[in-house]
Nucleic acid binder design. Structure first.
Length: 259
DNA sequence: TATAATGTTAGACT
DNA sequence: AAGTCTAACATTAT
């Protein structure tokens, strides 16, 4: 579910309410998340994002690292509201509860030191410089779409935004990463500088079940040009959008304007 | 009932 | 050896 813009949305919302608050209790509903003992009593210092992961930094304490994977959500609840189904973890504070909801149970939580992010392009919101993209992709034959989604290189881009960025850049997702010219990488740089910040401003893309911390839908689905639009008409050139499988993932593109 | 789903990764294959 | 691909994880919705 959540890629960089969705996790950034949660991060900003969490950082707006949690710092200074004391953890009153932790209830692990799904034992597969691990024991998570000993967090009670700590206060939140701040909340940051690393790629698609969230760090709850505790004052004079460890960091709680959350990864939502495919279907994880976070929900802030006040008062005695009913607990939704698929709730896997509850962290209580005096002013409310933070719920991890995750139907597929892929989400992970670990407590420890801050994770070290080794991706050279650690935060695509700061820009994806064409020259560095070209250097990293040199000689590689994997599809450029798989390259953009490889978290070891670039932290935070997933399936929706890889498809959208490549449409914006007019590049076929199946092109070998190493075959792009510097001019083409500049188009990728420009497209991501448009697509990613706009998605953050829209508080994410709600195509099925994404909701923000307060249960609200995002609005970036209104800006999707190709993702999940198989058979529709490309708004840029009038071509027909097609779906392929690449690296095991659905991949949407317009073959008539993406080369 | 079969298929696909916004992520990651271990192991297989080249 | 390094690069790339595939299956698996667990569950729901169409």
């Amino acid at each position: 579910m959540p890629e960089l813009p969705e996790v950034e949305t949660l991060c900003r919302q969490l950082d707006g309410i949690l710092p200074g608050q004391e953890i009153r209790g932790v209830r692990v509903v799904d034992a597969r998340l691990g024991p998570l003992a000993g967090l009670g009593g700590y206060r939140i210092f701040k909340v940051t994002r690393q790629g698609k992961g969230l760090c709850l930094k505790l004052e004079n304490g460890p960091t709680v690292f959350l990864h939502l994977r495919m279907t994880g959500r976070l929900l802030w609840q006040k008062g005695a509201a009913p607990i939704p189904s698929h709730t896997r973890l509850i962290i209580s504070f005096s002013s409310g509860k933070l719920l991890l909801i995750d139907p597929r149970r892929f989400a992970t939580v670990r407590v420890g030191s801050d994770p070290v992010l080794s991706a050279p392009l650690a935060n695509p919101l700061d820009g994806l410089p064409a020259r560095r993209l070209k250097e990293m992709a040199e000689e590689r034959r994997l599809p450029v779409k798989s390259f953009l989604m490889d978290q070891r290189f670039i932290a935070g881009i997933g399936n929706i935004y890889a498809c959208e960025i490549l449409h914006g850049a007019k590049i076929d997702p199946g092109r070998p990463a190493g075959s792009l010219t510097i001019a083409e990488w500049r188009r990728v740089e420009k497209a991501s500088a448009l697509v990613l910040p706009r998605a953050v401003a829209c508080r994410g893309t709600t195509v099925s079940d994404w909701r923000d911390l307060f249960g609200a839908s995002g609005s970036n689905q209104e800006h999707l040009e190709v993702y999940a639009r198989e058979g529709d008409i490309c708004r840029r050139c009038g071509g027909r959008i097609e779906r392929r499988v690449m690296g095991g993932r659905g991949t949407w593109s317009c073959p008539s304007c993406q080369r």
